[in-house]
Amino acid sequence: MSTDHFTLFQEALRSTDRPTKVILFADLAGSTEMKGRSGEVGWLPTIGKFLDITTEATTKHGGEVVKYLGDGTLAAFDGENAAEAICSAIHIQEELREVNSQGVVNDCLATVGIATGRVVEYKAPGGGIDYVGSVVDLAARLCSAAAPQAIWVDSATVASANMNKVSSKMGRVHDYSPDDYLSEEWRVELKGFTKPVKYREVIWHGKPFGATNALVDEISERTTAQTNHQTPPRPDVREGVVRKWDPEQGRGFISTLSDGDYYLDRRHVVGGEDLIEGRSVRFVPRPPFKDGGRPVASCAIQEGQHVRATFQRVLAHKGYGFVDIRDALGNQQSLFLYLGDDAAGHRPGDVVTVEASRNHRGISARIADELQTTGGVDDAR
């Protein structure tokens, strides 16, 4: 006898006894392009490996695979197991990173979205249990908005998760605290949801991976079109090592592991200082000056450098904030700044002298010589 879904869902809408579930949606990033580049012999094994990894990670952490959606996996965890769902997502990303590095598969990257709430549970035609509802849709939308290797979780998941249970390989090496596993809270507009959705990214490998390029472009266009003064998206940043620096010419090169060398001249160094070969640098990437040239590093700051900075945001209840720095040409980036109990004494616009220092997140800032002045970013150059 076939399932009467119309009646089933009508009754579910009237019911107050819907179960609370943590829904995880994992999708193979770039699968359409991958299929276009090679025949089935090339992409079928990759999808198979991806499905194996998502299944193993789900069951290991106490969840159940609800169904496979082509090159995606929908999994469910009991409502009190939000931390286990996050651990499952981390397991997926770590395993994929490992098999890619070993050459077992190539470019097999996933996006993961997790949402928590009441769902409609029903018996699918195949006999298994399935789930529908806005929570399922939200997990899928978060997954589709996230960049490859990112894990996005909604605010309900964060609120219900025991973050003391969350762990990753890098977190264990660098002794992450529970708070270190979550980015600050952001809002994103998602298709099918009338209001912006609050979410956080799970920091499982040192830094956030962010949003898809399409979403970033959409946000950028929307921000440009608005007439109010909302804060624009923050620029992308890179880290590298000074490979060569000529103090007489005031220029050199920064090497990165991900995308080769960047050209840099003194105008793009915050404070206009000479760089030290072999020292780590954080910078904002720019396109080459001419076709065929090397990409350019702007707003560069090297580890150990002291610069003037302006508070952009202070989260006093969390003990940290963000400061803006600029180079001589106006290129800008933000640095994380831990403040501890002193956070309540700072306000956006305050100017401080900071030292670029390294922690498990990469190059951040610490106060070197606080100045009790206020003003805009131009004062901090």
Rank of each mutant, 00 (worst) to 15 (best):
K195P: 00
R172K: 12
E221V: 08
Q102F: 07
I367A: 00
I254K: 15
D341N: 13
G192W: 03
A344I: 11
V351T: 08
H61L: 13
D217H: 13
E94Q: 10
I53G: 13
A156S: 12
G128E: 06
L335C: 07
R308K: 13
G330L: 03
A115M: 06
A150G: 07
G376W: 06
L13N: 10
A145E: 01
G126Q: 03
F9A: 03
P125E: 06
A161C: 12
R14I: 01
R234P: 03
A146S: 05
H61A: 15
T46I: 15
V314L: 12
V270W: 08
V197P: 00
V242T: 06
R97V: 00
K169E: 13
S2Y: 12
G206C: 09
T373F: 01
E273G: 09
T46S: 13
V352M: 04
L182T: 01
S15R: 01
H5A: 12
Q10S: 09
A12P: 07
V354R: 05
D261N: 12
E184M: 08
R234M: 09
V270I: 05
R266G: 01
T58N: 13
R286T: 00
T3Q: 14
M170F: 10
S134D: 11
S2I: 12
N228T: 11
E185W: 02
F336D: 05
V307W: 07
R358A: 14
N228G: 10
R347C: 11
E56V: 14
I23Y: 02
D350S: 11
Q333P: 02
L371M: 03
G48E: 15
F193W: 09
D217P: 08
N81H: 07
T20L: 02
K244G: 01
G63Q: 06
R313V: 08
S357I: 11
A214H: 08
R381G: 05
L339F: 10
E303K: 09
V22F: 00
A214L: 11
F9G: 03
A309Q: 03
G252Q: 11
G304C: 06
N213M: 10
T55F: 15
L142A: 09
V104G: 07
G340P: 04
A146I: 06
S160Y: 14
C143W: 01
D341H: 15
R97M: 02
P232Q: 02
R267L: 04
M1D: 13
P45D: 13
D261A: 13
S2K: 13
T224G: 14
E95W: 10
G376P: 00
G252L: 09
K191G: 09
F253A: 15
R97W: 04
K207E: 08
W245H: 06
A83M: 02
